[in-house]
Design a protein around this nucleic acid. Structure first.
Lengths: 237, 237
DNA sequence: ACAAAAGTGTTATCCTTACACCCATGC
DNA sequence: GCATGGGTGTAAGGATAACACTTTTGT
């Protein structure tokens, strides 16, 4: 079918899946390679793109095949094409990144020969190929993006407290702790959160539960009121 | 050499080159296709990736071959891989975008069969493949990026006045005109500009000429003082 | 002298920051 | 009643927006 007479590289997709469970660090989903090269070593989930398959679809398919994780937010990150990055020949990889809440998408047993597991972002094992570099880029992108897009909501359960949201920001950005009062004021001022209830059975004053209001977010972006948003999410302290 | 037994798509690079000449609109560098498909139609410069060539190198090589433009700032944009985007088969294109000042990189005669020319961004001809979509994405990215990175300096000559810089921002963002006083205060406060002289032979008070101080910019980014920067570049008015 | 663009002073207002304090719940 | 987080009041200082004004050059 293809009529070009040029040599063709192989094309793969890889997925950097960030997970959050409310704790002190972000988690990363890795698989242990079942075959050569790098057999037995940990790597990003991913694989070859089918000939009639969109890239993002391909990434989601490989992710589900190798880890069981599905129905998640995924986005293209960067394409790595340096000659020599794969010992077997020219392989160009379209890297993606994805965000999940570990509660909604519980640890998934691997399907076939490969094993899958979650690792703390600051305690990663040695990685196959150039995957360490891909993860570095994904982490930088996540930190940058969290400042001007309410992307972090993918990492939380449907309903969450402002305290949980603040802890998430602190974890993602790796900063010590910022001022509670000001965090609340900024976030609530945007109007992208809506109340959905109240905590129960907690050993302290029950917090209000919020949900991300996507409609109101889109309206803000469209109305060019996005400055409000950017300022509100752009935490320094 | 490659040992994978999967079918392989073709891989190309395309480059969206934005040019600025101090005028009211941004320009875009296009080539007229010499062969099928889409023969005679306008398209982005680009072509097939060589087997032992990095993607960015490939983009710069194709750009120079087809338009003569070289030695410019280029960056990866997004990878387009939808099946059917090329009538001849599966072709995945790694799109890049680049910024040039038209004064420094004068209109370049095309080398071989293809013709190259600059078009106003708001008066583009009909485009081959999915190139119109690629350009849309590049434009959105440029507008977004100009707000938190001093990327616009690539579009100006070495030395420029604050008035020219302001006109550039107004052009890129497509806003009417913002307040001169406040623009100056914000930009100068960052310290990323340094004086390099003064205009001569102009029919009005000569403006101070400035140059982008990259060292100081890097220092700001590293020092996490980047909030200063972001706020300074994030124009709303 | 005039046009044209550069460059400055100033103020009211809003936003950010910082710190102290009160509230509701389970044990 | 104490520990634990949730939630609020507020005031000082800094940044922003808006407007009017002065300056310097070529013609």
């Amino acid at each position: 079918m293809p009529t070009y007479k040029h040599p063709r590289p192989s094309v793969t997709v890889d997925v950097v899946v960030f997970g959050y469970d409310g704790g002190q660090t972000l988690k990363l989903l890795l698989i242990q390679r079942g075959g050569e090269p790098f057999k037995g070593q940990w790597a990003l989930p991913g694989g070859f793109v089918d000939m009639d398959e969109d890239l993002e679809v391909s990434a989601l398919r490989e992710l589900e095949e190798e880890t069981g994780v599905k129905d998640i937010y995924v986005e293209q990150l960067y394409t790595f094409g340096q000659p020599g990055r794969d010992p077997r020949g020219r392989v160009i990889s379209v890297a993606h990144y994805a965000l999940v809440n570990l509660g909604n998408h519980p640890t998934n047993a691997a399907s076939d020969a490969t094993r899958a597991d979650w690792f703390s972002l600051d305690e990663l094992p040695e990685l196959a190929f150039d995957h360490a570099g891909i993860i570095d880029l994904a982490t930088a992108r996540l930190r940058a993006k969290v400042r001007y897009q309410p992307i972090g909501f993918e990492l939380l359960p449907e309903a969450f407290t402002l305290g949980e949201l603040q802890r998430l920001y602190e974890t993602v950005l790796g900063v010590p702790e910022f001022n509670k009062r000001n965090f609340r004021t900024r976030i609530l001022k945007t109007g992208i959160l809506e109340e959905v209830g109240k905590q129960e059975n907690v050993a302290h004053r029950p917090a209000l539960l919020y949900r991300f209001n996507e409609a109101r977010y889109r309206k803000l972006v469209d109305e060019r009121d996005s400055a409000v948003l950017r300022r509100a999410l752009d935490f320094e302290l």
